[in-house]
Design a protein around this nucleic acid. Structure first.
Length: 484
RNA sequence: GGCUCGUUGGUCAAGAGGUUAAGACGUCGCCCUCUCACGGCGAAAUCAGCGGUUCGAUUCCGCUACGAGCUGCCA
């Protein structure tokens, strides 16, 4: 009884991929895959002016990194091609369907020029409003033919009634009804011969057998017009799933200005694709069982679009960072080293044990760039203040710190095994003999070898990585500083 | 301006007439501990307002407020 689900992601190649679009793509993928359906990629390049070179590659790259493998698309024919609207346009497809509508009286040629259209505009509440006045609807067949023969530029408009209502059903928002008088006679075919998004969508979704149209909330108000198109053709409309929008922390639509509006931006900032996908899945949807961290496979299994909610969601960078940190902690080491290495190399030029250093920060970072300020002291001892030796809880001050360091220096000089375990035994032995608290010895040592208030790892870990020579050098510097 | 949609802690959210109104991020506190993290434990904090309907409303209805989207030969 139920037919195979087919969803489509239909981006315009106009630049970076906005996270809102990525979420749309994700949900489309999930809706299809949850029920073993097909996910189709269709390129909507009907706006010749906005086309951006290289945007196609961005789309493919993003989809691949996000793991959203399409079943059909420009590069994977599934029998419904072409999958690029400009290529579909070449066959005169859209014009052909528009003419069918003209024959039915559901559309008409419009020859109005820019000036006349301009004169129809009025400013209400500071905004330009324009509703077409059906001027060209009343042209006779002969007049239309004459203008066509003369080569007067034209568009084809939808002919919407002025009375009655139109209703469509959305899976999330329910039944929505509008008065037909609100429906503008939107352009179906532009004067350059290309279809508008509004028209091409309906035609292609139908021709490609799309069962669920998933898109942003901003299309809800034009949906009644699409409904009328389906009705005019006598086609059964798809199920509509309109998604709540994603906003920035000021509750405004996410824009380029906030610097994290696109998938590329986020990758540049050190986020990993899986975490981004995981996070945006949770923007406007939640699973039944409260799990928050899941793979795309797990997500596919539990995704039920009926749990999508209606209200807009704020894109919370703080939580994304947390989630990214969770992914880093759980990442297998090889991939972790590989992803972390560029940041490591930015600050460490010396020959040191990279893996030991990176292991130290794995649970301490949320995004990869966090690594740099955490480990830079391995490269070069910072010029620190001796105030750092004073720590109330550790019961240390510059005097007892100096004492500890001075006493420990010869011990460390006579010791050759700078492994954590060996250093541990050595210093703990000193602590025991002297009868002080661990912190009273370890705080000054860690301070001396790191020059930092906070460090990943403790004194033993740091000394092991630094090695004997450098550790002693730094301790001597500490003694010098404290002696002054 | 008109139309449409929305409104549960700071944020993401569960909830779908009777609950101590889940959980997560963040915040704060405690534990662990040589620091910072990690991990563990705990705390503060929410149903936009007003009217109905009802024995009983976060939940249903209406109004108001606020927010957002649309109102392009952009998608």
């Amino acid at each position: 009884m139920s037919q195979k689900i087919r969803t489509r992601y239909a981006p315009s190649p106009t630049g970076k991929m906005h996270v809102g679009n990525l979420r749309t793509a994700l949900y489309e993928y999930l809706i299809a895959k949850h029920e073993g359906g097909d996910f189709i990629l269709r390129i909507e390049d009907t706006d010749q002016e906005r086309f951006v070179e290289g945007a196609l590659e961005i789309i493919y790259n993003t989809m691949e990194k996000a793991g959203l493998q399409h079943d059909e698309g420009p590069d994977r024919d599934g029998g419904y091609g072409p999958y690029v609207q400009s290529e579909r346009q070449d066959s005169g497809l859209y014009l052909e369907y528009a003419k069918k509508l003209i024959d039915k009286g559901e559309a008409y040629y419009c020859f109005c020029d820019k000036e006349r259209l301009e004169s129809l505009k009025q400013v209400i509440a500071g905004k330009e409003i324009m509703m077409y006045d059906k001027h060209c609807l009343h042209l006779s067949k002969e007049e239309v033919q004459k203008k066509l023969d003369e080569g007067v530029p034209y568009v084809i408009r939808q002919n919407n009634p002025k009375e009655g209502t139109t209703t469509f059903n959305d899976e999330i928002y329910g039944e929505i009804t509008v008065n037909n008088e609100e429906l503008d006679d939107m352009v179906l075919i532009k004067s350059d011969g290309y279809p508008t998004y509004n028209f091409a969508n309906v035609i292609d979704d139908h021709l490609m057998n799309i069962t669920h149209v998933v898109r942003g909330n901003e299309y809800i108000s034009s949906s009644p017009k699409y409904q009328r198109l389906y009705d005019a053709f006598g086609w059964e409309p798809p199920k509509y799933v309109h998604l709540p929008l994603i906003t920035d922390e000021t509750h405004k639509k996410l824009s380029k200005r906030c610097g994290h509006s696109s998938f590329e931006d986020l990758l540049e900032q050190g986020f990993i694709p899986e975490a981004i996908v995981n996070f945006i899945a949770l923007l406007g949807w939640s699973p039944e069982d409260n799990t928050e961290i899941f793979t795309l496979e797990e997500l596919t299994k539990m995704f039920d679009y009926r749990h999508i909610n209606k209200s807009p969601a704020v894109f919370d960078m703080v939580k994304l960072r947390w989630m990214n940190g969770e992914y880093i902690k759980n990442m297998d080491n090889d991939r972790y080293y590989e992803m972390a290495m560029p940041y490591y190399k930015n600050v460490i030029k010396k020959e040191l044990d990279e893996r030991k250093i990176l292991d130290l920060v794995k649970t301490r970072i949320e995004v990869f760039p966090d690594i740099e300020p955490l480990i830079d002291f391995f490269e070069k001892l910072p010029d620190y203040s001796i105030d750092m030796y004073t720590h109330k809880k550790m019961k240390t001050n510059s005097e007892n710190s100096l004492e500890v360091l001075t006493e420990l220096l010869p011990v460390l000089e006579n010791h050759d095994d700078y492994s954590i375990d060996s250093l541990h035994d050595l210093i703990m032995n000193y602590v025991a003999e002297k009868g002080i608290k661990n912190g009273q010895a370890l705080w000054p040592v860690r301070t001396a070898v790191s020059g930092k208030q906070m460090t990943p790892g403790g004194a033993f870990e740091i000394m092991e990585i630094l090695g004997k020579e450098e550790s002693l050098r730094r301790i001597k510097i500490g003694i010098d500083k404290l002696s002054q």
